[in-house]
Amino acid sequence: MLGIIGILVIFGMVFGGYLAAGGKMAIIIKSLPFEMMMIGGAAAGAFLLGNDGGVVKHTFKDIGKVFKGVKWKPHDYKELLCLLFELIKLARQSPVAIEEHVESPGESAIFSKYPKIQGDKVAIELICDTMRSMSMNYDDPHQVEEVLDKRIEALEEHRMHSSHALQSMADSLPALGIVAAVLGVIKTMASIDQPPEVLGKLIGGALVGTFLGVFLAYGFMGPFANKVKSVVEEDLHFYKLIREVLVANLHNHATNICIEVGRQNTPAHFRPSFVDLEEALKSVKQEAA
Rank of each mutant, 00 (worst) to 15 (best):
L155K: 01
E156G: 00
E156T: 02
E157H: 01
R159Y: 01
H161Y: 04
S162E: 02
S163R: 02
H164P: 07
L166K: 02
A170L: 07
L173V: 05
L173S: 05
P174N: 01
P174F: 01
A175N: 10
A180S: 14
A180R: 13
A180K: 12
A180D: 14
L183A: 11
L183N: 09
L183K: 07
K187Y: 07
T188R: 10
M189N: 14
M189G: 15
A190C: 13
A190H: 14
A190S: 15
S191W: 10
I192F: 09
P195V: 02
P195F: 08
E197N: 15
E197V: 13
V198G: 07
L199A: 05
L202C: 07
L207F: 11
G209F: 06
T210D: 11
F211C: 13
L212R: 11
F215N: 12
F215A: 13
A217Y: 06
A217G: 13
A217V: 12
F220S: 08
M221Q: 11
M221W: 10
G222S: 14
A225C: 09
K227P: 05
K229D: 00
K229L: 01
S230C: 12
V231D: 03
V232S: 02
E234H: 12
D235F: 06
L236I: 02
K240R: 14
K240P: 10
L241F: 09
I242L: 08
R243V: 01
E244H: 14
V247M: 07
A248R: 04
A248G: 08
L250W: 04
L250D: 08
H251E: 14
N252M: 12
N256P: 06
I257E: 14
I259E: 10
E260R: 12
V261C: 12
V261E: 08
G262N: 05
Q264I: 07
N265S: 11
P267K: 03
H269R: 13
F270D: 07
P272S: 04
P272Q: 04
F274A: 15
V275Y: 15
V275G: 14
L277E: 06
E279G: 11
K282E: 15
K282Q: 14
